Amino acid sequence: MKFKFRFAYYLFGLMLGVFFVIYFLGAKADAKGVEFCYLPNCRTLKDMRSKSFHYSETAKQTLNEGWVTLEDIKASMKYGEIDFSKSKIPSKNGKIYIIEGKTSHNEAIILTVANSTTKATLETIEKK
Rank of each mutant, 00 (worst) to 15 (best):
S56M: 01
N64I: 08
I89R: 15
K74A: 12
S52C: 02
S52D: 07
S56I: 02
I73L: 15
S91Y: 02
K60S: 06
E100C: 05
E57F: 08
E65A: 14
S85D: 13
S76C: 10
S91H: 04
A75S: 11
N93H: 07
A59P: 00
M77Y: 09
I82N: 02
K95W: 11
H54C: 03
N64G: 07
E65T: 13
S56K: 00
E65Y: 12
S87A: 12
T103C: 09
Y97V: 06
N93S: 13
K74M: 11
E100D: 14
D72R: 04
N64C: 05
F84W: 09
F84R: 06
F84C: 07
K88L: 06
K102M: 15
E57D: 10
E57L: 12
F53V: 10
S76M: 04
N93G: 03
A59N: 03
T69N: 06
E81S: 15
M77E: 10
I89Y: 03
H54V: 08
S56Q: 02
E81P: 01
S76I: 07
I98C: 01
I73R: 02
E57Y: 04
T62Q: 15
D83V: 09
L63S: 05
D72G: 10
T103V: 09
T62P: 05
S91V: 05
E57P: 01
Y97A: 09
I99W: 07
K102T: 11
A75V: 09
T69Y: 07
H54P: 00
L63P: 04
K60W: 02
K102P: 07
M77K: 08
K74F: 12
M77I: 07
